[in-house]
């Protein structure tokens, strides 16, 4: 069994800086297949940058990112395309194509494969919409006509269009009300029950973090402070961790999720 068989994502000796501003220093991190990794950090700690580097949207100054054993930054076009077809991404604001209807947004990645005929695409899109609990009457609407929660769910449906093995979620519940964000968490849990999903999730929301993640990675002071399950991470002594998990807000959220503090 090679290491690439176990790990969906591997980050090695990653350094990033913008000019003289250092964002990451020597980050080592791996995400096992089938697990949910929560990425936590204060604003400006480089969560989004790390996520973008995993997606191959940004180049680290040093170090490598491998997805399914393939380097994201050094692979050629067809290898990269294969990796990309196995990944789904939910961007923070949804990033739905505003010129396309809801239906066409979800159909786009399927049509790009050129192997599915139009009847199948139609059935599949309706299935995905049902999966995220969006009624069929919304299928022909444009993204500008939708509410924030619907955009998030449709963006998730688009991210799931090709049944990815690896899903990246950037702030999946930000901008949703507590009821909606709980629904979103339930939705992702249901998807995990049905499909073998690996999820990398950057979030600020402790409820989401406690409910979904198997392991948590904490980014602060340009480094990876802690990596492990929630209990292990919370026992790390660092001012940021104490403030983030053990403040009033953290106690409330984690207490209600059954964590003993």
């Amino acid at each position: 069994m090679t290491t690439s068989g176990v790990n969906a994502v591997e980050v090695e000796d990653l350094h990033s800086r913008f000019g003289s501003h250092v964002i990451h220093e020597d980050i080592n991190l791996s995400v096992k297949r089938g697990e949910v990794l929560g990425l936590v950090g204060s604003s400006g700690s480089g969560k989004t940058v790390l996520l973008r580097q995993m997606l191959g949207l940004e180049m680290p100054s040093q170090g490598s990112v491998r997805i399914f054993g393939q380097s994201v930054h050094k692979s050629d076009r067809s290898e990269l395309q294969q990796i990309r077809n196995r990944c789904g991404v939910l961007f923070q604001k949804g990033a739905l194509f505003s010129a396309l209807s809801v239906f066409d947004n979800i159909a786009l990645p399927m049509r790009e494969l050129h192997t599915l005929n139009e009847t199948m695409v139609r059935d599949l899109v309706m299935l995905k919409l049902e999966m995220v609990e969006i009624g069929s009457q919304h299928a022909n609407k444009m993204p500008a006509e939708l509410s924030g929660g619907m955009i998030k769910r449709i963006a998730l449906a688009r991210a799931m269009a090709l049944n990815p093995e690896l899903l990246f979620l950037d702030e999946p519940t930000s901008g949703l009300d507590p009821v909606l964000s709980e629904g979103f968490v339930n939705l992702i849990q249901a998807l995990r029950r049905e499909l073998t999903l690996t999820i990398v999730m950057a979030t600020h929301d402790l409820d989401t973090l406690a409910a979904l993640s198997d392991r948590v990675a904490v980014l602060a002071d340009q480094r990876l402070l802690a990596l492990g399950n929630l209990q292990e991470v919370m026992s790390t002594k660092h001012p940021f961790i104490t403030k983030f998990f053990l403040g009033d807000r953290g106690k409330k959220a984690l207490g209600s999720n059954g964590y003993i503090l």
Binding site: F103, R122, D123, V125, M126, L127, E130, G135, S136, Q137, A139, N140, E194
Partner: peptide, 19 residues
């Protein structure tokens, strides 16, 4: 049973409303 779930969902999926 897991396949059953997929097919029953397919049977229930509403058609795309026509423009």
């Amino acid at each position: 049973p897991d396949q059953e779930r997929l097919f029953s969902r397919l049977g229930k999926a509403p058609p795309l409303p026509s423009l």
